[in-house]
């Protein structure tokens, strides 16, 4: 099963772990992405997330298919992404994957977070301390970001 969710509520790592755990599995591997309080010397006070929700879920489903093609023994996949205001230190994304043995779920979790950052349409804005300044972030993995283009001059 795939358990995919975008939610404005606080993410519950334990609950997703329980959902993904399976009696045939000897491993649940977890990745928890959390919000950092600094960027290039600036203090981040708040992060705002938004998504193209229908497409994000669709893209997560495609990602699950890709994971299952690469690691056929994966049993359950859970991807929960938080939206709206996320205070510093809290989880913005949780990925949980179960498999009979740990190798597959560990590799699959790594793959899933990297691919999510490349392809799932979710955006994050950092709000900095003082003067109300803010910035839309860009994942360096995203092929149409300035950072990616600067590092991959054609």
């Amino acid at each position: 099963m795939n358990y995919l969710k975008l939610t404005f509520d606080k993410l519950d790592v334990g609950a997703l772990n329980d959902q993904v755990a399976h009696e045939s599995c000897g491993a649940v591997s977890l990745f928890v992405g959390t919000t950092r309080d600094n960027f290039e010397g600036k203090t981040v006070v708040l992060l705002e997330y938004e998504a193209y929700e229908a497409m994000a879920i669709k893209t997560m489903n495609l990602l699950c298919e890709e994971v299952r093609a690469r690691w056929p023994d994966v049993v359950n996949i859970g991807i929960h992404h938080r939206l709206g205001t996320v205070p510093v230190k809290e989880a913005s994304v949780v990925i949980a994957i179960s498999s009979p043995h740990r190798k597959s779920s560990l590799e699959a979790v790594h793959f899933t977070i990297d691919e999510l950052k490349k392809s799932v349409p979710v955006w994050k804005k950092e709000l900095y301390d003082g003067e109300g300044s803010s910035e839309w972030k860009e994942n360096s993995e995203c092929t149409w970001s300035k950072k990616y283009k600067d590092n991959h001059i054609l």
């Binding site: 950052k117 392809s119 979710v122 955006w123 994942n139």
Partner: peptide, 10 residues
Amino acid sequence: LAVIPPISGG
């Protein structure tokens, strides 16, 4: 159609 700026999820 949707305009998709560089994504920053995760």
